[in-house]
Design a protein around this nucleic acid. Structure first.
Lengths: 223, 223
DNA sequence: ACCTGAACACCGTTCAAGT
DNA sequence: ACCTGAACACCGTTCAAGT
C-alpha cells in the first residue's frame, strides 16, 4: 500500500508528533524534574519540536494534564474490594486517595474538575454504589462522595504544598517564626505542641479520617 | 521637630511606599479583578511605582499573600462560641471555614503553610482546646484539627476551582462530555445522576461534614 | 534608605506563514 | 494536514545604578 497517510485516507503531511508521544514526553519530564518543570515549551523541546506544534494534538495544557491522569489511573491495578458495602465504601475511597497521592503532579488537576478522567470514574461509581448499598439515597450517596473528595483533595494538596516548602531549604519558614513568637498565655495548646508540630502534621491518618467521615455521615443519615 | 525620617532616627530618603499602602492596593485589586489579577507588577502600577520597589517592604509574593490573610482574619469579628467542648469544636471549625471561604483569593496561601497568619491562630488554638476538652490527648487533638483542616482546605479549593471554571463560559467542560459519553451499563449510578450532578455538587454541606468528622474521630478515640 | 530601569529566565497561547 | 518562527501579553525576581 501507500504511505500511512494514504492508508488512513487522509491527505497532507504525515504527523511527526502524536498524543502518545506527547504524553510519554510529559511523563519523562515529570519523573525527572517534577511538576514545576512541566511546561508546553519543555514538552516540545523534549520532542525536538516547538511549543505550538503541540496544540495540534491537545487543546491546551489542561487537557494534557487530564490525559496524564487518565494514563496513570489506567496503569494502576484495580484492588480486590470487600463485599460488605460499608467496608467497600471505605476501601474504595482509600484506593482513590492512594492513586492520587501516588502522583503529586496531579495537584493542578485536582481542583479543576472533580476527577473527570474516565479511567478513574470506576472509583466514583464504586463509592456511590457502596453508599447506596449502605442504605443511602442516591442524593445522600453523592453527599458522601463529595465529602470524601473534599477531604482527599485537601489532604493531597496540603501535603504536596508542605513537601514543596520543605524542598526549598533556603527560605526560613514563616510558620516556625510565628509559632516561636507566640505568647504561651494566649496560645497554651499551640505553644505546648510547638516542638512536636512538624512530626505530628507529617503523620498519615487518611484511612482513619475517611473511616470517620463515613461513620459520621452514615450515622447522620440514620442507617 | 525634623522630618519623619529624623523622628524615627533613620537616615536617607523617606519611604514613599509602605506595607500598609501595598496591602490596601492589593486588596483593591483583589476586589476589582479577583486573585488572577494580583501580581507584583499590578500592585506596583496601582501605586504608580515599579514592581521592584515592593521588595523593600515585603520579602516576596508569598509574604504579601500572608499579610492579606492576616488583615482579613483581623477584620473578621470573633463569634460567640458555645461552652460545651464538643459544640465549641464544631462551631470553631465552621467559623474557620467561613472566614476562609469569604476570600477565594486565599486559595494560593492555603496549601503553602497550614494557616500561619497570627490573627487566625486563635481558631487553631480554639479547636485544639475544645478537642482536649472532649477528653482527647494533645496528640489526638492535633489529629482532629488536621483532619478538619484537610477537609476545609479541600472544600474551599475545589469550590474555587469549580467557580473559576464556570466563569470561563467559552470552554466546553470536559466533565460534561465525559459523563455524557459513559456507558450506563458500566456506570449505572453515575449515569442515573448525570443530570443532577451540577446542582448536587454545588450544595454546601460543610457544617454537616465537619460534624461528621468530629463525631467519627471522637468515636474512634472512644470518648 | 529607598526607588528605578533594564534584564533574566521563564510562562500559555495566537497568528500568519511555510511545506 | 501538520509544523514553524515570531510575537503577544504576561509572570516573579535579581542586579547595578541612581537620588
Amino acid at each position: 500500500m501507500a504511505s500511512s497517510g494514504a492508508e488512513t485516507g487522509r491527505i497532507g503531511r504525515p504527523p511527526r508528533l502524536s498524543r502518545a508521544a506527547i504524553i510519554s514526553a510529559a511523563q519523562r519530564i515529570l519523573e525527572q524534574d517534577g511538576p514545576e518543570g512541566l511546561s508546553m515549551r519543555r514538552v516540545a523541546k523534549e520532542l525536538s519540536s516547538t511549543a505550538m506544534s503541540l496544540y495540534h494534538h491537545v487543546r491546551d495544557k489542561d487537557e494534557l494534564l487530564l490525559l496524564l491522569l487518565e494514563e496513570h489511573a489506567r496503569r494502576t491495578p484495580r484492588p480486590a474490594l470487600p463485599e460488605a458495602p460499608r467496608e467497600r465504601l471505605v476501601a474504595t475511597a482509600c484506593h482513590l486517595h492512594d492513586v492520587l497521592a501516588d502522583c503529586p503532579w496531579i495537584v493542578e488537576v485536582l481542583t479543576s474538575d472533580d476527577l473527570t478522567a474516565v479511567s478513574a470514574l470506576w472509583m466514583v461509581e464504586g463509592i456511590l454504589d457502596a453508599a447506596v448499598g449502605c442504605g443511602l439515597s442516591p442524593e445522600q450517596a453523592v453527599h458522601v462522595y463529595r465529602s470524601i473528595w473534599y477531604y482527599t483533595a485537601g489532604e493531597i494538596l496540603v501535603r504536596a504544598g508542605r513537601n514543596r516548602r520543605y524542598a526549598e531549604l533556603d527560605r526560613p519558614a514563616y510558620r516556625d517564626q510565628a509559632l516561636a513568637a507566640l505568647d504561651p498565655a494566649d496560645f497554651p495548646r499551640l505553644s505546648a505542641l510547638a516542638g512536636q508540630w512538624p512530626e505530628l502534621t507529617l503523620q498519615d491518618t487518611h484511612r482513619q479520617d475517611i473511616q470517620a467521615i463515613v461513620d459520621g455521615l452514615l450515622q447522620q443519615a440514620g442507617v
